[in-house]
Design a protein around this nucleic acid. Structure first.
Lengths: 407, 407
DNA sequence: GCATATTGTTCGCGCGCCGAACAATATGTC
DNA sequence: GACATATTGTTCGGCGCGCGAACAATATGC
């Protein structure tokens, strides 16, 4: 029951029906490939005649191609259709506090190359260096393949529409128009996104949909807590392109100081930093960026903490369990507000899921308003490599498959 | 950039284009009536020829009608079109702790009659009584008009899909299938919704859209805090139809006990009850339903408190300001999570907006992640009568105008 | 060789947008 | 009053497109 926006709508022209059906066909092929025209027609509940034409057009647009012929018990053998993703490339960039991650991948998300190097904080130098690396990376590829854009993930506030980094405290960037700078240096389209939303995009566009999970929240626990909201198959970006920041909802207005400047954010209770602080007895409120840098180089991570807990370190276990409880309390609030089909969980702490699940679930039950809501599926994202980078790639690949705007 | 759900989509048939355009035309007429065919064609950027046919169909369906002829400086005078709403009726029911509100209105939201009576807590008696009152109310109307359904608003958890009241503590109802009971007693279609979401529906479907405000949050501060989220012109209902409960996000995990059973919910800090409790020095944690009942009959409301504050009662002013600060802190979290185009505010406390605006804004700035976000428009809903009842009516009227499902 | 089954293509039909022509209706001007 | 002009609303041929049915292509089993 969506209301039509009478100040900004698209009427249906005589090509609209076909545009819609062609795009649906592309998506069905994408999810069920390899698939024959006849099967496609059955899934779409259309006649083979129409599907045949749709397929012809998609082939003409270079979006799909005919593969091998399949087997059939009787009758003519089907011609399999595949989405053309192998030779459509995207460059993904994930700029983080210590390291910058660079990946080349195709439109299906398959990795073709990864580079990790120390982050350069000076914007001009960073851009120049990045352009050089991308050029080199693309040269390594075969000729047929074409790079269709660069997706950039930044930890902080980003205006996806203008491509500006509003505020990325970890990098010390404020009001940096990173998109035009990289676009100018590489001569490629550039899209910029925040890390939490990027992960949600990756889940939406590059992972196999387990159920009809068209509404979900992605929660990534790392140094901070990044989140992205997907409703009805659409990433929520918001008026100022800063939507989705569950990490900074309060658990206690007078709680520990958070990186964002406020007090008692969820992030300040359940992030990796919070967990380590709890273990080592640090006062999170007094940690300066300098301390953080030292800690990174110190290189004792939550993964190490989990290992200690597994070998019987009671203090480690209690630090992890405390963070898990806060994790669950935050998830309960997400459930009360969004009531999503599922919540995806990522981050180092999920490696201890067998240890913490019970605590997380119990905490959720403490604050969810119904028992059914407390049973919201929690899906641990399998140690999929580089979710942020995959999200950056999804920024480039998604427009090819997105639903056309209608009404 | 919406992803197509490949397990549940609608292909475009040869009538889809017209279905879409007909519905768009209906909505444009609705928002700009009276309007001529020629004007409609200009607004829709279609030829008059097509619009003429669309209009003919809408008239045939009884959705619009031709009115008077308008004036034109030169040339043939236009025939004005109007949406037929006067003789399409809806019954709205708002069941609350002390009183039940019953309203008859047309599809434009115009009130034709209101009845207020003591709430009957026994479900069979309530139903029987309600059916009798509705029958009588409808008899009072002219013959031509037809009632197309009953919208029911319940304070608590409601599954809109099944029509069941999951848990309404104020009424003591749990697992009551109120929809089929009322439907059976009245022989009319019944839709049930939670109060916060109903208010959001009313704002979306029955109020003139000030801007292209297709994404907003409605916050209603009364005994509790009810909220509804509208994203891209669609009310968020969620997997279990309990989405939108910002009222129960925590401001402090160890804060005062809330009606919902958890501690430190936003509601427990900024609701009318919380404000009054602050003024009278009550301990909210220890208030039983019985106390609440007494307080209601006591009939000292937040409106009285505001009056006292205006006449110089410093204690009253400080109680109001304290609630306002918590209101702003909660709004900041809403902004960080949803980043809506606007937030609509309703409830008694908005009558003191001139007094509290500064406090609310300052509190928002404390926790919003960017300054732009802190400037999210706050729209005080003009003392529109009975927002819940209007939402109940919107439940019945909305399907007539909603966008058709495509792709 | 023939019946049968399945895939993929082609074609007539009717729906619906598009553009243009046309009818209807008004105002101004000579 | 005749005529030019302007605007609204209708009609009609052209063409895009889904739909159903017929047909061609291609396989298996007897």
């Amino acid at each position: 029951m969506r209301k039509i926006n009478t100040t900004n709508f698209s009427i249906a022209t005589r090509t609209t029906a076909r545009d819609i059906n062609r795009r649906i066909a592309l998506n069905v092929i994408r999810e069920r490939q390899p698939i024959s025209r006849a099967d496609l027609a059955r899934h779409m509940k259309m006649t083979r005649g129409v599907v045949s034409v749709l397929v012809q057009e998609l082939i003409g647009q270079g979006l799909i191609y005919e593969g091998a012929t399949g087997e059939a018990a009787r009758g003519r053998k089907p011609t399999f259709l595949h989405v053309r993703t192998q030779d459509r490339l995207a460059v993904a960039v994930d700029i983080r506090f210590t390291k910058t991650y660079l990946m080349l991948c195709d439109f299906s998300g398959r990795q073709l190359g990864v580079e990790i190097y120390d982050t350069v904080f000076s914007v001009p130098e960073f851009t120049k260096d990045l352009a050089r690396r991308i050029k080199k990376m693309l040269k390594g590829q075969g000729l047929g393949a074409v790079c269709e854009g660069i997706g950039v993930v930044v930890p902080g506030m980003v205006d996806q529409r203008t491509g500006k980094v509003l505020n990325a405290p970890a990098l010390g960037w404020r009001g940096v128009d990173i998109r035009s700078k990289i676009a100018a240096a590489t001569n490629l389209p550039v899209h910029v996104e925040n890390s939490g939303r990027a992960c949600a995009l990756a889940q939406l566009w590059l992972e196999k949909a387990e159920t009809a999970g068209q509404s979900f929240v992605y929660v990534s626990v790392s140094d901070g807590v990044g989140t992205g909201i997907v409703m009805n198959g659409e990433l929520i970006r918001g008026r100022d392109h800063i939507a989705g920041e569950f990490g900074h909802m309060p658990l206690d207005l007078d709680g520990p100081r958070c990186m964002c400047g406020a007090n008692g954010c969820w992030e300040a209770y359940t992030s990796n930093l919070a967990t380590l602080a709890r273990y080592f007895g640090w006062n999170l409120s007094q940690l300066s960026p300098k301390h953080l840098k030292e800690m990174e180089s110190n290189s004792f991570t939550v993964l190490d903490l989990i290992a200690r807990a597994r070998t019987g370190d009671a203090k480690a276990l209690s630090a992890i369990k405390a963070s898990s409880r806060f994790l669950g309390l935050g998830l309960a609030t997400i459930v009360n507000i969004i009531n999503p089909d599922a919540i995806y969980l990522a981050g180092e702490i999920t490696n201890a899921w067998d240890v913490i699940e019970e605590t997380v679930r119990a905490a959720m039950l403490e604050r969810t308003l119904t028992e059914a809501a407390a049973r919201t599926p929690l899906r641990i994202t399998p140690a999929q490599e580089y979710p942020r980078l995959r999200g950056a790639a999804a920024l480039i690949a998604a427009p090819t498959f997105a639903a056309p705007r209608v009404a």
